[in-house]
Design a protein around this nucleic acid. Sequence first.
DNA 1: TAAAATTGTGTACTTATTACACATTAAGGA
DNA 2: TCCTTAATGTGTAATAAGTACACAATTTTA
Lengths: 244, 244
Amino acid sequence: MDKLPFLKTAESEKTTHLEFFNIALSVDCVIFGYEEKQLKVLLIKSDLEEYEGLWSLIGDLVKPTENLEDAPYRVLQSRAGLQHVFLEQVHTFGTVNRHPSGRVITTAYYSLVDINHYKLQKTENELHWHSTSSIKKLAFDHTLILNTCINRLRLQIMEQPLVYNLLPQKFSLRQLQDLYEAILGVELDRRNFRKRMMLKDWLVDLNEMEEDVPHRPGKLYRFRTGLKTVETTVSRKSHEPVNV
Amino acid sequence: MDKLPFLKTAESEKTTHLEFFNIALSVDCVIFGYEEKQLKVLLIKSDLEEYEGLWSLIGDLVKPTENLEDAPYRVLQSRAGLQHVFLEQVHTFGTVNRHPSGRVITTAYYSLVDINHYKLQKTENELHWHSTSSIKKLAFDHTLILNTCINRLRLQIMEQPLVYNLLPQKFSLRQLQDLYEAILGVELDRRNFRKRMMLKDWLVDLNEMEEDVPHRPGKLYRFRTGLKTVETTVSRKSHEPVNV
DNA sequence: TAAAATTGTGTACTTATTACACATTAAGGA
DNA sequence: TCCTTAATGTGTAATAAGTACACAATTTTA
């Protein structure tokens, strides 16, 4: 984007301003959690008449003085009390009629949070965790946004150890496998899963065992610190080659 | 995004309207071409004082009545005369001060076009193809946008036969390999490259040979029709599993 | 007809992926 | 105490994919 005509013709500013600025920009956060062997997503009751009784993602308008990339952190902080979470931009949705109250374009982010670490307040009774597998209909185009984010999540957990956000510090390989199965929606072979995880070199053997389980206890692991994470935008010079 | 407070309080609409709508949204197109064994990108001379002498990507503001996903097609059509091109959304950039004239958030798309099919008009002398490897500085944050799109392109050509957009209908494996090398910025082993392409099953052997080349002629191929392409957003029900 | 330039091809090695079965450990109940 | 239950921990063979590497064949041009 180069020209901003409305800034050059002061006298016609009002008209042009309204013409071009008659769009609002929001962010919507797909906040994933994990509980009872299910991938969950945090939703809020829609307060729009058009969507009465439906749930929607958590979002807000981007402020004029706020970096786009900061907006989802603010939303998570102010709407759900979440801080220092993992956030990744996924896609921007901008069909003309996606919002019944006006023209709103939204940028979707997904986030991974530890449900147990984040306790829902009783007062926040419009906020609820929903199992992703039981979600039928959401307000707006939020089903599309959710599915797009699930898709991205599924691709990314195969490449990067992001799921540390969803587990306690210490966990067994069985817990990790259950989590992967919940996210991917498939059953995995135990021996092959363990082999793959060991090959990735993401885990540290704690030399501790599970306790209070009604069966043979498993070994406990944690994620290695300092593992590299997603980097979507790249400041690398474009002529530098990649490894293939 | 759920609430739109400015639409509920009619009397304070003006203030709130200005507060929230004081952001413009644009699209920027990274238009890739291929010529003389180099990956090229179509740029336009910036007409902003702040960026005098610098080149920038081709973009425009999104219109209030226009779907976001339609805007880059319009931009390519109106600014560069391009129709029926491949376009893919990559990322949305929204740092507060990324545009010197005001708050503008931009969604970046990349596109692949056949340079020879699209002949630049003499009158469009502010438009030029630039080799990506020789680009040093662009207006705005367009270097970041360009690099992010190159990165995405590099990942996607490994998975999908998108490069058919950059080659003539009939081509030799050498031409195809040159193209991959130009995009990836690395040299590839000829035998392994050919093996990989055959494994992907993207190509059809035309049983024709190159002509008028100063050496042994190579066989000619074309891309199979009906090959599936990128699908970023997914309307699939979220509980359906993926293959892994 | 010899030299130059480039195509076309195969094999051995390594690495990753998949399918698959049995012994071991601890808890809990008879 | 011992048997049952329920899970953990482990290895191998087969297949598929990725990498490194060299030489003969074809055509043009001098």
